[in-house]
Design a protein around this nucleic acid. Structure first.
Lengths: 128, 128
DNA sequence: CGGCGACATGAGAATGAGTCTCATTTGCTG
DNA sequence: CAGCAAATGAGACTCATTCTCATGTCGCCG
């Protein structure tokens, strides 16, 4: 069933995501890989990022500009981010209160099958 | 300075946004306008939506699929949405708790100049 | 009322992220 | 080692959005 192969390319993608801790677009990761000598086709970068995201291994979100940005996250569970809009560095944050509030509110309005997005952007201490 | 002209096209856009209360993409609003006989160029629809959004007259957010969707909102102030992912209908929701929580958390991490996005998607009572 | 200048419009070209196709390469398992 | 299915990558393609630029239109001034 899970005929999951381990290719050089997939390892290169995972590994570069782990070396850098910030959110970057597929195109940026692709460029970084090329610079580092570990060339990987753009299509493969997209495919791999998507697979990893589906697995929950990495996190995706949309930058204010509307493009998808990816990063490796330590916590496997559900969490949100506090992202520096200048340098891309991100903190993982837990938001139990918010979880509770959204699900209560949604229920109050008769909504079911609820999901939510919450991202916080700002300027980190270093970039101020 | 404010050489703001009132054109038929801009009125048509504003007006159709007000007649329907849901989130739709620029392309969809454009199609609706055409159907209603009030044809407006696609580029103009984009321009007008963007202007209205900048003014704060309408709200923009990104659908899960990644395209920008727009809708006229009654409340001028800051608020969030509970959006039906099937029919696009949306409720405006206030989230004082969440506002407080995000700003407190961001401050705790040394972040400044903080903004946030919060959107809740689900299936409304009618669409369940 | 006719003219003028600036802003607005719209058709189509251009851009750019992301996806798809398909011939080729490459882990893996026997 | 052989064979096959999965993975790759170059490039074509899609599709939302933006840009360009020729033309239209609003509002004012004399």
């Amino acid at each position: 069933m899970s005929t999951r192969r381990t290719t050089r390319q997939q390892q290169a993608v995972s590994s570069i995501l782990e070396r850098h801790g910030d959110f970057r677009s597929a195109q940026e990761w692709h460029a970084l890989l090329r610079e580092s000598g570990e060339a990987v086709g753009l299509a493969t970068v997209y495919r791999t990022l998507q697979t990893l995201a589906d697995e929950g291994t990495i996190d995706v979100l949309r930058s204010p500009a509307g493009e998808a940005v990816y990063r490796a996250c330590s916590s496997g569970g559900h969490h949100h981010h506090l992202v520096c809009r200048r340098c891309g560095r991100a903190e993982e944050i837990e938001a139990a209160e918010v979880e509770r509030w959204t699900s209560a509110t949604a229920t109050a309005y008769g909504f079911t099958d609820v999901t939510h997005t919450l991202e916080v952007f700002g300027r980190c201490a270093d970039c101020s």
